[in-house]
Computed example of a mutant assay.
Amino acid sequence: MKPALCVFSLLSLLSSGAIFGFFYAWVCSTMWGLDAADPAVAIGAMQAMNASVRNAVFAPAFFGTPFFLLATALLAWFCRLKAASVIFALAGLLYLLGGMVLTMTVNVPMNEALAVVAIPQDAAEAQRIWDDYSTPWQFWNVVRTIVSGITLALTGLAIHLSSRTAAGAPA
């Protein structure tokens, strides 16, 4: 594999894995924990987490993944690794639509709406607010988790095909 393709393949794999892991952690621990907590606490905790997630550690995986994948697809194409190129491109487009665009059009607006909610003193009202937020938010998070998991699997497949083809094995 050419050095640039190797570097971008690694960036694609790392960013795909990072964003899949991020979304997956929300599925199997964070939201279940918040659902088990007092709803007023859950609302406040989610507001704090949403306010802190836009940072320099999160940004490369969230925003960079589709661009790393599409750049890797171009490099693979120029290296005459057509099957790998198509799979890298498919992974990039899949995450772009089912990960980043979904997040920006569904989860982020839900987060912004929750951010302006004053935490109610009434337990029943806090429960209603949390249930109205948590259930649909988790549904869409599962969707983006599945999409990012498929993106990660496709990235691994494309790397496998790249290394086999570059080594002279049939793709």
Rank of each mutant, 00 (worst) to 15 (best):
F20R: 02
F20T: 14
F20G: 02
G21Q: 10
G21I: 03
G21P: 08
G21E: 06
G21S: 11
F23V: 09
F23R: 06
F23D: 04
F23S: 04
F23Y: 15
Y24D: 12
Y24R: 09
Y24W: 15
Y24M: 15
W26E: 08
V27H: 09
V27S: 15
V27G: 05
V27D: 15
C28M: 12
C28Q: 12
C28V: 09
C28T: 05
S29N: 15
S29V: 10
S29D: 10
S29K: 03
S29C: 07
T30S: 08
T30Q: 09
M31F: 15
W32C: 00
W32F: 09
W32N: 10
G33D: 06
G33F: 00
G33N: 06
G33E: 06
G33W: 00
G33T: 07
G33M: 02
G33I: 03
L34A: 05
L34P: 01
D35N: 14
A36L: 14
A37G: 05
A37Y: 08
D38Q: 10
D38Y: 07
P39Q: 07
P39D: 07
A40P: 01
A40C: 09
A40T: 07
V41D: 09
V41E: 13
V41G: 01
A42F: 03
A42D: 06
A42L: 04
A42S: 09
I43D: 01
I43N: 01
I43H: 02
I43A: 04
I43C: 05
G44F: 01
G44L: 02
A45R: 07
M46V: 00
M46F: 13
M46K: 03
Q47Y: 12
A48V: 02
A48I: 01
A48N: 09
M49A: 14
M49C: 00
M49V: 08
M49S: 13
N50A: 12
N50T: 08
N50L: 08
N50S: 11
A51H: 05
A51T: 06
S52K: 14
S52V: 06
S52P: 02
V53T: 00
V53C: 04
V53M: 13
V53A: 10
V53H: 06
R54D: 12
N55R: 12
N55L: 02
N55P: 03
N55A: 06
A56E: 12
A56H: 11
V57A: 14
V57S: 05
F58T: 00
A59P: 01
P60R: 07
P60M: 10
